[in-house]
Design a protein around this nucleic acid. Structure first.
Lengths: 205, 205
DNA sequence: CCCATAAGTTAGTGAGTACTTACTAATTAC
DNA sequence: GTAATTAGTAAGTACTCACTAACTTATGGG
């Protein structure tokens, strides 16, 4: 044995969070016990507590990781410097693609951990969704200014509809054991949704 | 003491289901332990098992009760013999009113019990939602026939949007600790959604 | 009035949970 | 090279969960 047999705390901590995120998606957030996590990492169960004093500290770290991943994903969608008419669609599509590859997010969103057990986590996710709503609302506002969407459209309400589309779709996906293509289905439904926002009654001057 | 101090099995069974439904909404489906249920009913914890051999039998009974309540609610919405143009709106509104007074339903929909633990329950709810989708789809189809909705509208997809509206709204309601008026918010969003379905591009002949 | 039956209790089991204590061994600093 | 630090472990605590066995008591029919 020439190699290392231990890892540094920093490495381990990151590794645990990464595996927790994966495991939460695979077996469900409530089955992600410290034992299951330790097994997946390859250390003993109490070893977890060397890095995270409380289990909720793991959830906090996972939430931060998810937040970072989402920000990254949204930023990538924005960086593409698309015509604003496509931004909304790309935003939703890339978000759905992300959910598909990171099923832990909808799983956590539907978990007892979030809805009953862990108030801090609930607030964190509520805030994350609020930020998403804000982004959507802004993009819709720009579409209205560009006269592609109806002038009388309330951007906040429209954003809630798009958000509900995503969440409702994710729920259906989960209830149907993830047996259809989230992105394809979402794309089709979004087309229909956006058509309803279009400036048909009041054609541009 | 002239009155009875014990109840018949049938009475007790119904009582337990009713209280389980209430409790699932109040404390969350995963905190509705047999102990909590027994306390609420006013008997000892093992007393529950005299009436339901397994806990999942309680969930099955609760699911049946919910199904019956929903059917009743939908039937009531249909009995009103409304112009078909209002049926859709009444359907959604009365459903939201029902969710508001029976918060156990969204709670169960977001529970681990349903998504991970209890396959039978998941299928039961998936089927229930499928029936709701069918109803919505049918109503939208009639609106298209009546030329109030756009001829090119896919009734199935439109129904998914309405369903997502309800589910997404319920999720937001739950995430925000039920701090807004579900029905009022839903009514406003539904108006916007339905406007998007209207026959604006192809005015009636 | 007695007794069979059914509703309910007391006391317990085994499995699983987060978390702790007391120790060991690998790594790093000096 | 040795001492301090730190990652990790084995064993165990205290708790909660669904569920069971064996006993007790209330009720209604003969």
């Amino acid at each position: 044995m020439t190699g290392r047999t231990r890892k540094t705390a920093q490495e381990r901590k990151g590794e645990i969070v990464e595996i927790a995120l994966k495991l939460a998606g695979e077996v469900g957030p409530d089955r992600m016990t410290t034992q299951a996590l330790a097994d997946a990492v390859g250390i003993s169960q109490p070893g977890i507590f060397r890095h995270f004093p409380k289990k909720e500290d793991i959830w906090a770290a996972v939430a931060l990781r998810i937040s970072a991943l989402l920000q990254e994903n949204w930023a990538a969608a924005h960086r593409q410097d698309l015509p604003s008419s496509d931004r909304l669609r790309v935003f939703v599509t890339s978000h759905l693609t992300f959910l598909k590859t990171t099923p832990a997010i909808p799983a956590i969103l539907f978990s007892r951990e979030l809805h009953a057990e862990n108030e801090a986590l609930r607030c964190f996710f509520a805030d994350m969704i609020k930020r998403a709503h804000r982004s959507l609302s802004d993009m819709i506002g720009e579409e209205i200014k560009a006269r592609r969407f109806c002038a009388g459209l309330d951007p906040d309400d429209a954003a809630y509809l798009v958000l509900a589309l995503i969440q409702g779709l994710a729920m259906r996906w989960s209830l149907n054991a993830r047996n259809f293509d989230l992105v394809k289905e979402g794309d089709r439904l979004l087309s229909l949704q956006l058509k309803g926002f279009e400036n048909s009654q009041l054609p541009p001057a």
